[in-house]
Design a protein around this nucleic acid. Sequence first.
DNA 1: TTGTTATTGCAACAAATTCGCAACAATAAA
DNA 2: TTTATTGTTGCGAATTTGTTGCAATAACAA
Lengths: 145, 145
Amino acid sequence: MKIGSEEQLKTLLRTRGLRFTPDRLRVFRALADTPQPLSVPALINIVAPDGVNQATVYRTVEQFLALAVVQTVLLHDGVVGYELVPPFSSHHHHFICLDCGNVQDLPADRVDSALTKSLQGLGLKAVGHKVDIYGQCEKCHEDTD
Amino acid sequence: MKIGSEEQLKTLLRTRGLRFTPDRLRVFRALADTPQPLSVPALINIVAPDGVNQATVYRTVEQFLALAVVQTVLLHDGVVGYELVPPFSSHHHHFICLDCGNVQDLPADRVDSALTKSLQGLGLKAVGHKVDIYGQCEKCHEDTD
DNA sequence: TTGTTATTGCAACAAATTCGCAACAATAAA
DNA sequence: TTTATTGTTGCGAATTTGTTGCAATAACAA
């Protein structure tokens, strides 16, 4: 699974004339190993101890974005986070707890078809979507009771 | 319509012991008059000529967020934007053109019920949601043909 | 009108992001 | 393997973006 993804990243990079470097792999792994979207500063905290330079992280994230390896996600406090997208991770949506700020993944299949239909007749051509749902996660819901 | 919203803002602020000031009204109007979500720098560009200080804009946006007068929206280029939410604007979702970056509103009613259902059985309590759909807007779709 | 207290402006500060460029290293080809 | 090519990185400074403290100001309830 993980190795397969890394091979795909390698192939994708080379296809575009880019290089598969240790630093890029470190950033990729940080994203793959973290269940939550990461901001650039958060990413820097993770990979800096491995010797990856701050500027390199910015450049890598920008490239991953251009390559559609990652997508941006809005965290609860208005911070932009990055996460892997298919085929590097499963297609999913987010449930963001308004109490604790935790972001958890939601399986996407239940909502996808409905969204596609909702565009019919509007002259718009969808190639992707992002759904964020806000509320209380199970834990915080219990605390409130 | 507009006057009604401003009255509501005034009431909301006073209810919380906050004040209805000219600066806050200017920021509110900038948001109400712009059909797209605005980043803080963009807001500053709009209201600075009217004498609103940069720091004031940041503080006002933060307050509007806490008061749920605005919500954050992720623009196509990873920039965080702010827009009014109900009852200050209609409930809607976004269609973001990947070609030109334009953000247009989508009527929300078609997708809302489907989203609510999708959470059943997960132990999550939704109080709101945000749906962003990406693709080509009508204009850019024509250009591609 | 007046007192209370939230708000603002200012300017310094802190954090986040970008930039140029020389040294380096991943590839493909020899 | 070795080499040449050229994409990548590190560094540090410059820039942009966002934050803070505090005195002066202004909103507004009484």
